[in-house]
């Protein structure tokens, strides 16, 4: 018990892409496999760990998630689930994209799962033209080809204009 308190007091500094620094308890940072591997390979952890791919706003969200999950005991799964759904509630697509990028880069599987699932749930009933815009996908069909593909899979378009 004493040793775990000792560990909890250890802190790391993470630096976002826009230069903001975040002081994080080690057990919170360990939610990230990337940071875990960094700490494992280099015991004399550097003073400041730069995260050049994550901006301050996103990093603050990510660390909020990590803190909640690191502090909660495993018996409180229900509480964590409601935290997760509350955490992503009302978040816009841009913020979700940033979270997916950050969670993928920092290797936080739980966060990647819930953020990606939230995006999937949001787009699953959207028309394909809108999905194209959301992901900036270029339409490489000719109008005739596109009509043919749609005709082939007509059953999946039930209820879509």
């Amino acid at each position: 018990m004493a040793s775990s308190i000792e560990n909890n007091n250890e802190k790391l500094t993470l630096k976002s892409s826009d230069g903001e620094e975040f002081l994080v308890e080690k057990h919170v940072a360990l939610q990230s496999t990337l940071l875990q591997n960094m700490l494992d390979s280099d015991c004399s952890s550097a003073d400041v760990i730069p995260l050049p791919k994550i901006d301050a706003r996103t990093l603050a969200l990510v660390l909020g998630y990590c803190k909640k999950h690191a502090d909660a005991s495993s018996s409180k799964q229900g509480e964590l689930n409601s935290f997760d759904s509350e955490f992503l509630k009302d978040m816009d697509m841009g913020a979700l994209f940033n979270l997916v990028l950050a969670a993928n880069f920092m290797e936080i599987k739980g966060l990647l799962d819930i953020a990606a699932q939230k995006i999937a749930d949001t787009i699953k009933d959207k028309p394909h033209q809108e999905v194209r815009e959301i992901f900036h996908v270029e339409n490489d069909y000719t109008p005739e080809e596109e009509a043919a593909v749609r005709e082939e899979n007509r059953w999946a378009f039930e209820g879509f204009p």
């Binding site: 699932q117 394909h128 996908v137 270029e138 490489d140 749609r150 899979n153 999946a156 378009f157 879509f160």
Partner: peptide
């Protein structure tokens, strides 16, 4: 993570 029906519909997004 999408349902199969959505994936079939999104075949129309691009090749």
């Amino acid at each position: 993570r999408l349902p199969v029906k959505s994936l079939i519909r999104f075949k129309s997004v691009c090749k």
